[in-house]
Write a protein that binds this DNA or RNA. Structure first.
Length: 605
RNA sequence: GGCUUUGUAGUUCAACGGAUAGAAUAGACGUUUCCUAAACGUUAGAUCCGGGUUCGAUUCCCGGCGAAGCCA
C-alpha cells in the first residue's frame, strides 16, 4: 500500500470537488519538525488559478479530507502550508503491510518490458600494481560496492568489474628499482615471504625507492647546469625505465617474468585488502590485455567520417559541437592514447556482458576524459551510448591538505583499516555498560572489525560523492553522533530488547489491534514507509549518501522513542505488541539500509 | 588563457524553488532505582559579495571574489 499516493489522490479529488479543477500533479513533502503533522501540501501554487488566499485553500482542502478521505485525522494551516496528520488506523495498516512483506525494500526485477535498462556494469577500484591501495581508493571502492548493492535492490542485474592498471612506465619503475636495489648479484631478491611484508607494500616500497633515486639523479644534473626539463628526461634511471618498458612490450622473457612475479605479489596483497574491506568483483580486466585494443574502432570511425586525419598522420575528432574540443585519438606514429584503449575496452566489456548500462566510478579529475569518451561513442552510434555514466567523485583531503604520494602524506588503506578497528576496541573499553563478556576472543575481533569498518565506510559514504571531502582520522573513528557505530548500536539495542521479549514469551508476530499511537511512533512508521522510495532515489541518482542519511534518521528517531516510551515494561498488551513489531521492523530496515552501504550490523555490542 | 566542479555554524556535513536554513562535533547545562548512557534533553552559533527571475532563492540565471581539477 502506498499511503503517499493515496493521500495525493485524495487531495486531487478534494480540489476537484471544491474548485472543479484538476491539477496535473500534487506534491507532498514531509512536515517540518516544528509543526504538527507528517505530510505537508503546499497551496501557494493554487492561489493564482483559484484566486483565493493560500490559507483559505488549505483550510477548505483540510476540512474536505477529514470529511471524505478517511485518511486524515487532523490538519493545521500555516500560510500556504497544509499540514496533515493521518489516522492511527492508517499507520497501523502501513506497519502491518511492511511487517508482512518479506521483500520490503527490494524492488521487483527490471524486465524486458521496462523502458529502463535492466543490466548494469559497475566498474570501480582501478588499482595500479605499483603501490598499495590508499584512502582515495577506499572512497572509490565503497562507492562502487554500495552503488552495486543499491542497483541490485532496485532490481537490476549488476556486474561488478575492476580494471587493473598493471602495465606502463610506472609499473616498470618499481620493477627497475627492485632489480637495482632489491636483488643481490645472483638475481636473488627480497620476497614477501623473506621480508614478511604484504606483497603490494613490498612493491610499493620499490616504487618509492625509484622516485628517491631518480630525484637524486636530477639534482646532480641540475647541479652541473642542465635545464630542469632536460634533466628529467636525461636522467639515467629514466632512460633505463623507458628501455625496460620497450623490452616489456617486445615480450623480453626476463622482464616479463619479473613483471609477472611482482604483479603476483601485488595481487595477493590486494586480495587480502579487498577481503578485509568486504569488496569483491565478478570480473577483473587487466590493462596488459586491453591496452592494444581500440585501433579497430579508430579505423571504423575514420571510415564513417567520425574522425579525421591530420597532415602529420595523427587522428582526431572534432567535438566542438558538444562544447568540447578537438581531441587526439591516435598519435602520428600510430600508437594509442588513453582514450583509444578505453574505446576498445568499452566495446569489449559490452561484448562480454551485454549490459545496456555502464557505470565507471572514477575521480572527478577525469570528468573531461569521460565526456569525450561518451561523446565519441554517441558519434559512433553505439546502441549503448546513452547508457554510459561516469560516477564522478571528489578527492579526499586530509586536514593537513592534499594527499601527495611523493611527499609521503598518503594514508595507506591497510593501515587505516587497522586503525579504525583498534579504535573500535578502544571505544568498547570505554563504554560504560558495554557488556562483552559473553563474546569469545574471536567474536570480539569480528565485532571490532564490524564496528571499525562500519565507522570508516559510513564516514566516507555519508558525504555527497560529487564533493571533495576532508578526512579527519579522529572523526572517522568516532562512534558518537552521525556515525556508523551509532546506527549499529541502535540496531544492537533493538535486538537486545527483542531477545528479552522472546525470553519473556512475549508475542510479537502481529501488531496489537486496539492500539493508539504516540507521535514518535507515527513518525517512525512514516519513516519506514519512505524506505522503498529512498532506495529508488538512491538508485536513480547513484547516491549512497541518501541511504546513509536515511539510516541515521531512522536510528535517531528510534533512540528517541526508546528513551521516551517503555517497551518491555509497557502494561497495555496491545501497545506493547505493536511496539515490539515496530522495533523488529526498524531493526530489519536498519540492517537492510546499512547492507546497501556494505556495512554489517551486529546483534550485540 | 579556455572548460568543469565547488563556496552554509569554530569544524565536518544536510536542505525536489517552500515555513523560523537542519544534523553532528567542539562549548555551556542537565537526564540513569527502568528495556544496552556507544543513549536522550536544554542552550549558544552559519548561507562568500553584488545584481536578476517570482508569491517565495542556499538552490535557477548573470557578474565578481576565493578553493580545486582538467585541457594545452
Amino acid at each position: 500500500m502506498d499511503i503517499q499516493a493515496d493521500l495525493k489522490g485524495a487531495i486531487q479529488r478534494a480540489i476537484h470537488a471544491l474548485y472543479g479543477v484538476s491539477p496535473d500533479e500534487v506534491t507532498l513533502q514531509p512536515t517540518k519538525k516544528e509543526f504538527e503533522g507528517l505530510y505537508t501540501f503546499v497551496t501557494f501554487p493554487l492561489t493564482k488559478p483559484l484566486r483565493k488566499s493560500p490559507a483559505d485553500i488549505g483550510q477548505a482542502i483540510g476540512q474536505y479530507l477529514i470529511d471524505h478521505s478517511g485518511l486524515v485525522s487532523r490538519f493545521n494551516v500555516v500560510q500556504g502550508f497544509l499540514n496533515l496528520s493521518l489516522t492511527d488506523a492508517i499507520w497501523l495498516g502501513v506497519l502491518e503491510a511492511i511487517h508482512t512483506d518479506p521483500s520490503f525494500g527490494t524492488l521487483p526485477a527490471k524486465n524486458q518490458e521496462h523502458a529502463k535498462p535492466e543490466s548494469v556494469m559497475v566498474e570501480f577500484s582501478s588499482p595500479n600494481t605499483n603501490k598499495p591501495l590508499h584512502l582515495g581508493h577506499l572512497r572509490n571502492n565503497f562507492l562502487g560496492d554500495s552503488v552495486s548493492r543499491i542497483l541490485k535492490a532496485n532490481g537490476y542485474d549488476v556486474v561488478k568489474t575492476c580494471l587493473v592498471n598493471d602495465r606502463g612506465i610506472h609499473i616498470c619503475k618499481s620493477m627497475l628499482a627492485y632489480q637495482r636495489f632489491g636483488t643481490d648479484a645472483s638475481g636473488r631478491g627480497e620476497t614477501p615471504e623473506s621480508t614478511g611484508m604484504k606483497g603490494d607494500h613490498l612493491v610499493g616500497k620499490y616504487y618509492v625507492l625509484f622516485d628517491k633515486a631518480y630525484k637524486a639523479e636530477i639534482a646532480e644534473l641540475l647541479a652541473i647546469g642542465m635545464a630542469p626539463e632536460d634533466a628529467e628526461k636525461k636522467a639515467p634511471l629514466m632512460q633505463a625505465v623507458q628501455q625496460m618498458l620497450r623490452q616489456w612490450e617486445q615480450g623480453d622473457p626476463e622482464i616479463v617474468s619479473l613483471w609477472q612475479t611482482m604483479n603476483s605479489w601485488v595481487y595477493a596483497g590486494f586480495a587480502e585488502t579487498y577481503r578485509s574491506i568486504g569488496v569483491s568483483f565478478d570480473k577483473t580486466y587487466y590493462e596488459s590485455n586491453t591496452y592494444l585494443l581500440g585501433k579497430d574502432v579508430i579505423e571504423e570511425g575514420l571510415a564513417a567520417g567520425v574522425f579525421y586525419r591530420k597532415p602529420d598522420n595523427s587522428i582526431w575528432i572534432d567535438l566542438t559541437e558538444e562544447g568540447l574540443d578537438h581531441k587526439l585519438v591516435l598519435r602520428a606514429d600510430g600508437t594509442s592514447v588513453y582514450i583509444t584503449q578505453d574505446l576498445g575496452t568499452t566495446d569489449l566489456k559490452v561484448n562480454d556482458f551485454q549490459n545496456n548500462r555502464l557505470i565507471w566510478v572514477v575521480g572527478n579529475e577525469q570528468d573531461y576524459h569521460f565526456a569525450v569518451l561518451f561523446a565519441i561513442m554517441r558519434r559512433l552510434g553505439r546502441p549503448y551510448a546513452n547508457g554510459l555514466y561516469h560516477l564522478s567523485y571528489g578527492m579526499v583531503d586530509l586536514p593537513s591538505g592534499k594527499m601527495k604520494s611523493r611527499e609521503g602524506t598518503v594514508v595507506d588503506a591497510d593501515d587505516l583499516v587497522q586503525e579504525v578497528i583498534d579504535a573500535a576496541a578502544q571505544a568498547a573499553d570505554e563504554a560504560v555498560k558495554g557488556d562483552l563478556n559473553d563474546f569469545s576472543a574471536e567474536g570480539k575481533a569480528d565485532l571490532f572489525r564490524m564496528i571499525g569498518l562500519g565507522a570508516l565506510k559510513y564516514f566516507l559514504l555519508k558525504v555527497d560523492a560529487q564533493k571533495r571531502m576532508t578526512f579527519n582520522p579522529a572523526d572517522s573513528v568516532d562512534v558518537h553522533g552521525h556515525t556508523g557505530p551509532y546506527i549499529q548500536y541502535t540496531h544492537a539495542r533493538i535486538r537486545s530488547v527483542l531477545r528479552k521479549a522472546a525470553a519473556q514469551q512475549l508475542a510479537f508476530d502481529t501488531i496489537g489491534t486496539a492500539t493508539t499511537l504516540d507521535d514518535i511512533e507515527q513518525q517512525l512508521i512514516f519513516l519506514l514507509n519512505t524506505y522503498p522510495q529512498r532506495v529508488q532515489e538512491a538508485g536513480a541518482d547513484l547516491a549512497p549518501s541518501y541511504i546513509a542519511q536515511y539510516a541515521y534518521e531512522l536510528a535517531k528517531t528510534y533512540n528517541q522513542l526508546f528513551d521516551r516510551l517503555s517497551i518491555l515494561k509497557e502494561t497495555d498488551a496491545d501497545k506493547q505488541q505493536t511496539r515490539l513489531v515496530l522495533s523488529k521492523v526498524v531493526a530489519e530496515t536498519i540492517q537492510q539500509a546499512m547492507g546497501l552501504l556494505g556495512v554489517d550490523v551486529p546483534e550485540k555490542m
